[in-house]
Amino acid sequence: MAIKKDYEDIPGTFVFDADRGREGYHLNQFCISLRLQKNRDAFNADEEGYLDAYPMTPEQRDAVLKREWNRLLELGGNIYYTSKLAANDGINFQDLAGIMTGMGREAYRDMMLNGGRSPEGNRYQSEWDEKETD
């Protein structure tokens, strides 16, 4: 019997479990390679050629080239890995969050300065579904 995923109903969140780890393996291995300067140099000189060494899916490869940060997570990427690609592009964790939430840099930073995103209304997917139908 499969292990029940009691965390799937948390809205706006991917839990990086074994299934995601399997799907995202080559994507994440590509991302972590960018922690070293020589690899960043090689990638920045020829992105397509560098990616050929990582047998990721065409969708994952496309999302890397287009820097579709949420899509990378949807396709099995993990934030600690994808943040290496962001760092390569000069984007830090907070600005990356500003992009992923769709809020933009300033609004996101302001939200954090005001205590962050409240858990109220953000615990269950059903709470987000209700907001959308309002």
Binding site: P11, G12, T13, L73, M112, G115, P119
Partner: peptide, 17 residues
């Protein structure tokens, strides 16, 4: 302590928790 770095719920903080 509380933090979420990823996706659309990034920025979650739960001071009470």
């Amino acid at each position: 302590m509380s933090h979420q770095l990823q996706y659309k719920r990034a920025g979650l903080i739960n001071q009470e928790w």
